[in-house]
């Protein structure tokens, strides 16, 4: 099937290569928005292989990419007005950094693609430009040994490629650093929102039902009034961990994500208390602080996976302490809340 981003063909000694557009169409933009919201994420791929940008020749640079379409789109857009080749590795639709961590964006796959697509016939320079974050999976000296190709590490972000080329194929220190700006954190929130999947329906449903319980039996009215309030509190706990904490990340005290989550969770709980949303019953108030703190802390801790600076050793260290605490808080909070139905 012909993809909309293929706008022509280039003949090479290694066969015909598709020429890609360097301009995003509305279709690209729309599908980017969709994929950010986890829609159709799993099959958002590009066919692995060699592509041409502009009118490249034997001297043109070769840029290595993954087959997650969003990453590929950023690369082709960054190469606007340039001539070059794009070598897409099969990373099973996963972005460069994640795939490099898993090893699919790796030495073996890169060496295979260099040989498979007969790069030595297409270009004479024996050099490939690999995105810096791919270095987690690619070993430059092994590629040199296996294929004779020299790996040059390009910038972290595709948009810095023109600057990298202008600087004589050397990255400036700021092109090598990965940051975690407000915009970048915000882009990751939609994926976090769907973390709990079907629990997002089951848990509120359970609270709605339990909210109807009282000393004399079950009341549908109570279920709606108390249960509705409970569902709002739960939603706020969840959002506190996976939306508010990521947005305010650098502003919240503490290094540990779980502690940051507790801070935002309790701030939200305090706000709810102030607006009389928690309860007037002290048992239920305490129960809500435990529940909201625990849920918010857990969700915030999960954001370590999206962050660009947390180490595995650090995450394990905080989890050993906080995961039992989070489970304890949520269990105790739930029991307290159920108990408070009967007093």
């Amino acid at each position: 099937m012909k993809q909309h981003y293929i706008i022509g063909q280039i003949e090479t000694p290694a066969g015909i290569v598709g020429q890609v557009s360097t301009v995003w169409t509305n279709k690209d933009l729309f599908s980017t928005l969709k994929v950010r919201w986890s829609i159709g994420r799993m099959d958002y791929t590009v066919m692995p292989g060699l592509y041409a940008v502009g009118n490249p020749d034997k001297e043109s640079d070769v840029y290595v990419s993954c087959n997650f379409k969003l990453s590929f789109d950023h690369l082709r857009r960054a190469l606007h007005g340039m001539n070059g080749w794009i070598l897409v590795l099969d990373t099973k639709g996963i972005n460069v950094w994640c795939a490099a961590g898993k090893g699919t964006f790796g030495t073996k796959e890169l060496a295979y693609r260099i040989k498979e697509h007969q790069l030595e016939k297409v270009v004479t320079h024996k050099r490939v430009i690999v995105p810096q974050l791919g270095a987690t999976g690619v070993s430059a000296y092994k590629i040199k040994e296996e294929t004779g190709c020299k790996v040059v590490y390009g910038p972290v972000k595709a948009c810095d490629i023109p600057g990298f080329v202008a600087n004589g194929y050397k990255t400036l220190p700021e092109m090598r650093k990965i940051d975690f700006t407000l915009l970048e954190r915000t882009k990751l929130i939609p994926v976090e929102l769907f973390y709990a999947k079907y629990y997002l329906i089951i848990v509120p449903a359970i609270f709605l039902i339990l909210a109807g319980l009282h000393t004399k039996g079950f009341s549908v009215d109570l279920s709606w009034s108390n249960g509705g309030r409970a569902v709002i509190n739960l939603c706020i706990a969840y959002l506190s961990g996976c939306v508010i904490t990521p947005i305010l990340l650098p502003l919240i005290p503490f290094k540990r994500f779980s502690l940051k989550g507790v801070v935002t969770g309790w701030l939200m709980a305090a706000l709810l208390l102030y607006f009389n949303f928690l309860s007037t019953n002290i048992v239920e108030i305490i129960a809500w602080f435990l529940l909201i703190g625990g849920i918010s802390s857990f969700m915030a801790m999960n954001f370590t996976g999206a962050s660009t600076y947390t180490s595995l050793s650090g995450v394990q260290k905080e989890m050993k302490v906080f995961l039992p605490l989070q489970i304890g808080c949520v269990a105790l909070g739930s029991m307290g809340w159920i108990f408070s139905r009967f007093i």
Partner: peptide, 12 residues
């Protein structure tokens, strides 16, 4: 060992 098994993009 810890495994990254969330979808493409988003995570890590």
């Amino acid at each position: 060992e810890p495994v990254c098994d969330c979808g493409p993009g988003g995570c890590c």
